[in-house]
Design a binder for these strands. Structure first.
Lengths: 337, 337
DNA sequence: GTGAAAGCGCTAACAG
DNA sequence: CTGTTAGCGCTTTCAC
């Protein structure tokens, strides 16, 4: 595996010329470039980011912090980030907090970032003040994607607005009794988003005079399996709502299954609406409020690269868009028909 | 953000001493170490992997290549890898092939690896000969996790054995008519695994004299939503099997939903078994053959770090274990009861 | 125990 | 258009 120096020696050129030729800097003659390229591939030259980085101070890498990868939302954001970063010539260094959550130090502690990355994109992560201080020390651009992060500029949907849209859809159809499958979970890092969505649900319901029975406010911890269980329990009782608003599509899919097993017809007996626009939503014919999660990751990636390369850093970002997609799981409630 | 040189100057020591102290090399006196540590944190010292790497040739980073992140299996492997690598002081550089699949060059082309990583872990990816040659050029350890990869040593379950175990469970319960929800998909990169599982299904069935109707061999493309649709279609027809073997739990969950909507009772009318041990399997009370996917990633990580640090590279690995977990979705078929 | 010096592979002025 | 000369921040002989 050759170095630039060896190519230079081989060709009787200087290292700088070779370096320039390799990087396609205009001031080099066509022939030289061709010569260098040829020698490079013949000698199996592989550039070293470390060396380049040492001298330029640019690593061409971005750190991506996620609470875990086993949630569709997070991995979709990462996909979007990776796709865009790759196109821009940047690598992604992944920091999965999943394990480090309990006990040990989390991996974005100063010692672990070690200036490997030029910027950091944070997904649904709440920092302790210490962690925040250590990150700030690096003095590199940081952006959050998804739920708003304290102290960071965030790219994401307005959680209140998206939940209101979902809830209002059922209200507009005539539902007067609504249940919520929320994402709140004491373990969860996405607390903010979950409680924001919960509040928006209650607000919308109250505003329309829909009475919300506290026993109809469930928590599915943003997990399909958990949602399935709590919904099964609710619909095994004597009174239940005709409309079920789920704070995520994964939970909505769990709910659909529970209802089906309980012998209830969707949407004849119960309407179900989700939030997020999960890849499976269409196959389950699920009505939902879609947001383009990959695109949000992509947007964060583009923005952060711009900032790495000197663009100004805006104070905050436009909230991401969302759209009500009406499918087959919502309809007017039984009484109204 | 200070450098080692600044700490040295501040303390009137040499760079070497500071470097040694920081790395905890024994030959340094207690007091010096304490002094250096103190100065380092006071001056906000953050080490530079690039500089260290340049001089040692070690990056303390491992590249992880995945076909995509939106599949539970892949992201679980990545989680396992990340967890272990983090504990060993290595970073993971992610290469998500998802986007680069069609058209563009895939990111592990030589130019993109640029010696950033000390080793590569590959998940369910088939290389072209060119790609393989470029990777070989880097001359660093490589291991595959999951489905066997041509030319690479692989850590993973025996796909034939796990499928045989699942199929035989239904046969042992007395089922004489079996259907398969396979993962085969012309787009997919996991072709090998899918067809291996499909063959094992057929073998087990034939061996026990169970007739397999070709119209009962479905493909769910390893996706819950797709599986749900194809199963719904099958059970809307006049004849269907009493046992459904699904090549993944995600597809099994889709199947459960479809059956429920078709008005069929599981396991009274139809038994369903999955494979993999998805996080949701328990909540859905799904019988399955579990494999510890995270542990496989973890094992790959431990192994590759050992190899980076000079351990010998075994020719091949013991297949990973799996276990039949009987839950509520399987029972003897109607006729037998 | 600690220091001096050389070098890892590349880029970046500054010349010419 | 190309070469010279310094580094980038760290580790590593080899001395003392």
């Amino acid at each position: 595996m050759a170095t630039i120096a060896q190519i230079a020696a081989e060709l009787g050129l200087s290292k700088s010329t070779v370096s320039r030729a390799l990087r396609g800097i205009p001031s080099i003659s066509q022939e030289t470039v061709a010569l260098v390229r040829e020698a490079a591939s013949r000698l199996d030259y592989v550039p070293s980011v470390a060396a380049a980085g040492l001298s330029t101070g640019r690593n061409h890498a971005v750190g991506v912090v996620v609470p875990s990868l086993d949630r569709w939302f997070y991995s979709s954001v990462v996909s979007g980030i990776d796709r865009t970063l790759a196109a821009l010539g940047y690598d992604v260094v992944l920091f999965d907090l999943d394990h480090s959550h309990d006990g040990g130090k989390r991996p974005f502690a100063r010692s672990l970032l070690r200036r490997r990355v030029d910027a950091v994109i944070v997904i649904a992560t709440v920092f302790t003040p210490d962690e925040f201080a250590e990150l700030a020390l690096l003095d590199i651009p940081m952006i959050a994607v998804g739920p708003p992060a304290v102290g960071l500029r965030t790219i994401g949907v307005d959680d209140g607005a998206i939940m209101a849209a979902a809830t209002n859809h059922l209200i507009d159809l005539g539902h007067r009794s609504l249940g919520l499958v929320g994402g709140y979970d004491s373990q969860s890092l996405t607390v903010y988003s979950a409680s924001e969505r919960e509040h928006a649900f209650t607000r919308s319901a109250l505003r329309s005079g829909v009475v919300v029975d506290p026993t109809w406010m469930l928590s599915g911890a943003y997990q399909s399996g958990v949602a399935q269980q709590v919904v099964a329990q609710l619909y095994a009782s004597s009174s239940w709502p005709t409309g079920l608003v789920c704070a995520s599509d994964e939970m909505a899919i769990g709910a659909l299954y529970a209802l089906s097993r309980a012998g209830l017809q969707v949407p004849h007996d119960v309407s179900v609406i989700g939030i997020d626009g999960h890849i499976y939503a269409e196959a389950y014919d699920l009505t939902t409020c879609t947001q383009d999660v990959q695109e949000q990751g992509s947007r964060a990636a583009r923005q952060i690269v711009a900032e790495i390369e000197g663009a100004p850093a805006p104070e905050n970002f436009e909230p991401a868009g969302f759209e009500l997609v009406v499918r087959g799981t919502t309809a007017p409630p039984p009484q109204v028909r």
